[in-house]
């Protein structure tokens, strides 16, 4: 209950963030503009709308996750609002989870809004809407949850700016981990070992990317989908656990 109260309060706070609306408007504009672009490229018409639409949702969602996520905790410490919460019977991990859950709710609402925008465009352009699209959207949301946890983890021990940089880097590298492994295959043992270590430590964000499947009408089985979701959930739990450990030891000064 305490976690939920903090989450709902965080959600309310997020709703007042202008950044959120700016990013949301941009996302919707991008999704809408895919219609204009597709006019120019007749043959690839459906593919382009889906590709650009899902890409925009992913990109802007990640920006929200990062730029709202890094402020979740640091703003509370900076404004000292955390003093009154931590002196109440709220364990620090509960505070952290509440903040995380709050942003998750925000991101969920945002994803729904952006997805609705995409559906409207698809419908207006008479693009057939397949079940695969919703699986892709679900995984995009799982990726947001992982990224939010990364941002939260960094923000428990570094400044907001550094957290943003680190999280962005993690996002980019997380999408390249597969390349990391192929790259490592050509190297000596030590380098390969290090690259492999990084590969397993970093989140493999490409796993959550089903854009190709949607565009090329490929299927992903239900059990595969569950496996990917379980991977995302485990990774998130690991990140949140680490963040809690760090947060527990820290001074609020």
């Amino acid at each position: 209950m305490k976690i939920l109260s903090i989450a709902l309060n965080t959600f309310r706070e997020n709703l007042r963030d202008k950044l959120l609306y700016n990013l949301l408007v941009f996302a919707l504009l991008m999704i809408g503009s895919s219609v204009l672009l597709s006019r120019l490229t007749l043959g690839e018409f459906h593919r382009l709308i889906l590709d650009l639409g899902l890409g925009s949702i992913n990109f802007f969602g990640v920006l929200i996750a990062i730029f709202v996520g890094i402020g979740l905790v640091s703003k509370e410490i900076e404004k000292k609002t955390i003093y009154t919460i931590v002196s109440k019977p709220v364990a620090r991990y509960q505070f952290l989870l509440g903040k995380y859950l709050g942003l998750t709710i925000t991101l969920f609402v945002n994803t729904v809004v952006m997805a609705l925008g995409l559906l409207v465009v698809l419908y207006a352009q008479a693009v057939p809407i397949e079940g695969m699209l919703f699986k892709a959207l679900a995984l995009i949301f799982v990726e947001f949850m992982v990224i939010t946890a990364v941002a939260l983890l960094f923000s428990t021990f570094t400044s907001a700016t550094l957290s943003a940089i680190f999280t962005l880097a993690m996002y980019v590298v997380g999408h390249l981990t597969a390349d990391l492994q192929t790259f490592g295959a050509k190297m000596d043992d030590l380098s390969r070992g290090i690259l492999n270590g990084i590969y397993y430590l970093l989140p493999n964000l490409e796993r959550f990317n089903l854009k190709g499947h949607v565009v090329h009408h490929l299927e992903v089985s239900g059990s595969d989908l569950m496996l990917i979701i379980a991977y995302g959930a485990t990774y998130t739990a690991f990140l949140l656990f680490t963040a809690s450990l760090i947060f527990h030891r820290r001074d609020f000064r």
């Binding site: 305490k2 109260s5 309060n9 404004k79 000292k80 609002t81 009154t84 919460i85 019977p89």
Partner: peptide
């Protein structure tokens, strides 16, 4: 010199802290 969640009204503000005590 406390800072609080300034988007809340005083009632909402106090209710929020009440929730933290169940």
């Amino acid at each position: 010199s406390p800072y609080f969640y300034d988007y809340l009204t005083s009632r909402e503000f106090l209710c929020f802290y009440g929730h933290l005590f169940g």
